[in-house]
Amino acid sequence: MDVAGLLARAAAMVPADVVNETGVTVVDVREYPDHDEWEVALDPLADLDTGWRPPTAWWDLLIDRAELMWLSDATGSVRLGLPFPALWRHLRPGMTITVHEGRPAVGTATITEASNAS
């Protein structure tokens, strides 16, 4: 199933009267795909978990949707702001590093430019 289909199925499971902390409802979430903003819809949809007891199938749909988005958005440019620049000065264009957001690793990155600016 595609990303839009998974979003529609997950949104259909949320009761109409559920509102998240920022006032977003499932009606709001359903409008994102109309504007080709599928990526934006995942966070507010996941935040609609209060005020009802989401079934496991709902969480599974959100996980499937996130995994599909990862596969479709697997490349891009990123500028890293490192907390300890001195530890990264050895990086040179063409080198490959492993990217982590905790454990396990979430991907790899190829250095295209390095700056030793403080």
Rank of each mutant, 00 (worst) to 15 (best):
V19D: 12
W88V: 07
R30L: 13
H35N: 14
D36S: 12
E101K: 08
L45N: 02
E37T: 01
F84C: 09
I97V: 15
T56Y: 02
H100F: 14
W38P: 00
R103M: 08
H100M: 10
V24P: 00
L68D: 05
G107N: 12
R103L: 11
R79K: 15
I97W: 04
T98F: 01
V18R: 03
A8D: 15
V78K: 13
E67D: 15
A74Q: 09
A105Q: 09
D34S: 06
T22M: 04
V99C: 07
L7Y: 03
T75V: 12
L48S: 01
H100S: 06
A46F: 07
L71P: 00
A86M: 08
M95G: 06
L7P: 00
A86I: 06
D17Y: 04
G5C: 01
L42F: 14
P33C: 13
L45T: 04
D73Q: 14
W59K: 06
G23K: 10
M13C: 05
S77E: 10
L62C: 14
A4S: 05
M13Y: 05
R53I: 10
L62V: 03
T25A: 04
G102F: 08
D64K: 08
P83W: 09
L48C: 02
T25W: 03
G107H: 13
F84Q: 14
T108S: 09
H35G: 07
E21F: 07
V78R: 12
R65P: 00
D47Y: 03
A4D: 07
A11P: 08
D34Y: 01
G94N: 01
G107F: 11
P93H: 04
L61G: 00
L42Q: 14
V18Y: 03
M69I: 15
V14Y: 05
G23W: 12
V24N: 05
M69A: 14
E113Y: 08
D34Q: 09
D43M: 12
A57M: 05
V99S: 04
V40L: 12
P15T: 10
W58M: 07
T110M: 07
R9L: 10
S72E: 15
D64F: 03
N116M: 08
Y32R: 03
V26G: 02
H90A: 05
A105N: 06
N20W: 03
L68S: 07
D34N: 12
V27R: 13
